[in-house]
Amino acid sequence: MTGQALYAVLGCGLFCLGFHALVVAAHPLRRLLAVNVMGSSVFLVLVAGAAPGDPLPQALVITGIVVAVAATALGLNLLLRLAVPAAADEPADGEGGS
């Protein structure tokens, strides 16, 4: 088995580890991290599975990383909103809110 194929196989293992955490974990932050691990494993498979020096998968992975970062940021912000207890959520001074 070549080194590259080994990385691709490791990526498959990483994907399943992330999927396991996604299924088992109850805390949303752990689930978000699990989805990130799954995404990273896909990037690993994409780069390791390509021919050496093929620029197309590298460009796709760069695109994917940026999209993953954006999705993670959105997820973390949603988590923060979930974490704040509803009682502390009232606008303090009549301004804002619905």
């Binding site: 954006a70 909103r81 809110g97």
Partner: peptide
């Protein structure tokens, strides 16, 4: 996609 993520975040009510 970056813009849409930003729009999603800015849509949320501000945290205390």
């Amino acid at each position: 996609v970056l813009l849409i993520a930003l729009a999603g975040v800015r849509c949320l009510a501000p945290l205390p």
